[in-house]
Design a protein around this nucleic acid. Structure first.
Lengths: 238, 238
DNA sequence: CAACTTGCGACATTGTTGTGACATGGCTGT
DNA sequence: ACAGCCATGTCACAACAATGTCGCAAGTTG
């Protein structure tokens, strides 16, 4: 499965160069043209890697990076920053900002790709899973295997928990029944049972108020949607 | 005041690179070339941080790390492991081995320094596990190998005590049977015996009233939960 | 040798999970 | 607009798997 890269860059020329190069290398790319948009996309549909320009029309890439590092759910996201000058590099990759790597503009595509690969490789070996994930009224403790909805603990069975975390990890992306059957149940796809539906139902039932996060896409599959418009706003970012 | 780093590495080239780089960054460095030597030096003259190669001529870095973690005096020592492959990383930074971080060889000096700084910063803020732990009606004296429930001393066998402290140290986090088998019994996981269950049972029996702290998570493992509500039973949903 | 510890098999018990039957509701082509 | 179809929701239950429980025998210690 192709790795997903989110590019946050406002300069159209550079955007098309990046799109072309990275797509050619087999990556799947998405774009944001402002810092705010990038921030939102990175949270709601986390990519495998974020390519982030420092200079953006609204909030700076540095700020974007800091905010992502501050939130539990995006703490482990691999980030490569693009900067025009070599000066700020220390800050950027240092702990103040916390990018994984950087490239200097004007950039060499070949080098960029090498660095992308390197960062992905490094990260893939590392437990990326944050211990604690929060979404609005939902709170998940991976290590402790616990879930809260509006601060009330809800007990899930092992399977339910796996299904939930799988959906949450891939939030914003639709998961087909086959995908879920494979990744959660570990069985070959192609079955036509009510297994997935039944368990989604159990999830929803236990989730109570938070059930709206789990959406059905008729004819496609299920999706965990963290930007439910339900009046209340995301508690994540200030 | 310069922070002291002990480097355990047998490859001379790498040693000189590390010496050069870390010294330049203002650290004070010491070296050991074998696992045994490193172990001894770490115990007799504890550095602020240990940089430990996995592959060593005598005992493996993993073993060194485990032994340091097992001893009370070196339990809190910050350790960064250097490994040639990304594979073992999970074990290395996981509870089994317990390194604070790792770097993959061939290593980027820049990255290494960042990680060293990060680990040092993280550790400096963190107090070490106290010898005496108390939870509600439970009191454990690590050093004295004694346990009290409601002020009545309960005698545990060596194995039981080890199981209990392992669970307590990792309180709040689920421990799978395999994890426990490995960390408490030191055997390879994958067995299907009633060993763990039996001993959990013995624990619970001896714990009496405090048995509620040890929770079973069906399909996952066991968890020591320190936030059990006293009188009331686990009230799932109000 | 006696007391104790420990691992494991056998069986009991309990919670979890898959499944088929049926209900419901949205989509499509006419 | 309508009928029919197909995807999904819902439910109850039996099979199954995980865990609790117990006792015994082998190993250990002093």
């Amino acid at each position: 499965m192709a790795e997903r890269i989110l590019i946050v860059e406002d300069e159209p020329d550079l955007v098309s160069i990046l799109e072309y190069s990275l797509t050619k290398e087999g990556f799947e790319v998405a774009f944001a043209h402002t810092g705010t948009e990038g921030l939102r996309m990175a949270q709601t549909s986390p990519p495998d890697l974020l390519l982030l320009d420092v200079m953006l029309p609204d909030i700076s890439g540095i700020e974007v990076c800091k905010q992502l590092r501050a939130a539990d759910s995006s703490k482990g996201l691999p980030i490569i920053m693009m900067t025009a000058r070599g000066e700020e590099v220390d800050r950027v990759v240092g702990f103040e900002v916390g990018a994984d790597d950087y490239v200097v503009k004007p950039l060499s595509v070949r080098e960029l790709i090498l660095r992308v690969r390197a960062v992905l490789r490094r990260r893939s070996a590392k437990p990326v899973e944050p211990e604690l994930v929060k979404f609005g009224r939902l709170r998940i403790d991976q290590a402790g295997h616990r879930v809260w909805v509006d601060d009330n603990e809800v007990v899930f069975t092992a399977l339910e928990f796996r299904l939930l975390t799988t959906l949450v990890e891939r939030r914003g992306r639709v998961q087909t029944r086959d995908t879920l059957l494979h990744d959660v149940w570990g069985v070959a796809p192609g079955l036509t049972t009510r297994t997935v539906d039944t368990h989604v139902r159990r999830l929803r039932k236990k989730l109570g108020q938070a059930a709206t996060y789990v959406q059905t896409l008729r004819g496609v599959g299920y999706r965990f949607n963290s930007e439910v418009p339900e009046g209340s706003v995301e508690g994540e970012l200030a």
